[in-house]
């Protein structure tokens, strides 16, 4: 692994291009989570009453927020990276400079994580305007930190997918077979307690489950010892995915 500070300049390159379409991405990353908040939160939430002593939205918001981090960082590191690699040949010109393949890929994972952070933060701001507040200022800071970890985790996982992708259609497998099931079986919309045992077990293999559990605890300020395990899963899986994502992509880029 050959990393350098040039990772920051690869990140910066994305920032320079981002300023041209930042508003469209705001819109795109807000609309779907907003639908969830309105339909599930306000529509269905009206029938649910109190949820662990608080309105349902306090349960839902951290879940949706984490989901939008996952979506943004995943899609950036799939479609965004694929376009840069295959259509624009950007990686070819990057690695002809002192930027190493590792720098280039790490810079793009960092970028994917940043895009996730932006989406998650926008969600948080919307929730705050709806009157659904994180329990303290410290919670806000911890959530921001968590979103970065979650962004690196899903950005890196997506990077592994991209390293194998022969074309755009390939990404459908990942989003339909991995992302969508995670959305529904990771305790985003309802607690996992009433699922049958095998489903609960399965959920433990979904990284989103752990991310949502930590986000929800931070948002509402009810910490428990089990969270440490959830966080460790995010941290270790994130590190491993980052390592393999960079390695796999290097193999694809350097021939």
């Amino acid at each position: 692994m050959n990393f350098s500070r040039r990772i920051a300049w690869v990140f910066w390159r994305n920032m320079v291009s981002y300023k041209r379409f930042v508003l469209t991405t705001f819109l795109a990353s807000l609309i779907q989570p907003l639908f969830y908040l309105v339909t599930f939160g306000i529509g269905m939430g009206a029938y649910l009453g109190q949820f662990g002593g608080k309105p349902y939205l306090y349960f839902l918001v951290p879940g949706v927020l984490t989901t939008s981090v996952m979506m943004s960082s995943s899609f950036e590191c799939m479609y965004g990276t694929f376009v840069k690699m295959i259509h624009e040949k950007l990686y070819d010109s990057l690695i002809a400079t002192p930027v190493s393949a590792e720098d280039a890929v790490a810079g793009d994972i960092a970028w994917g994580a940043f895009r996730g952070l932006v989406s998650g933060s926008l969600m948080m701001i919307v929730a705050i305007f709806m009157g659904i507040l994180p329990v303290s200022l410290l919670s806000v800071l911890l959530l921001v930190l968590l979103m970065v970890f979650v962004g690196v985790l899903f950005g890196s996982l997506a990077m592994i997918v991209t390293s194998f992708a022969p074309n755009f259609d390939f990404f459908n497998y990942y989003s339909e077979l991995v992302i969508t099931p995670m959305l529904f079986f990771s305790g985003v919309f309802f607690p996992l307690d009433r699922f049958p045992g095998w489903m609960k077990a399965l959920a433990q293999f979904m990284p989103l489950t752990h991310a949502v559990a930590v986000a929800r605890a931070i948002f509402n300020g009810d910490y428990s010892r089990g969270l440490l395990l959830n966080f460790l899963v995010i941290f270790i899986l994130g590190g491993a995915a980052f390592y393999f994502g960079v390695r796999r992509m290097k193999k694809r880029l350097i021939k």
Partner: peptide, 8 residues
């Protein structure tokens, strides 16, 4: 090949 950054 033309490897310019077309976003910039």
């Amino acid at each position: 090949e033309i490897t310019l950054d077309s976003d910039l």
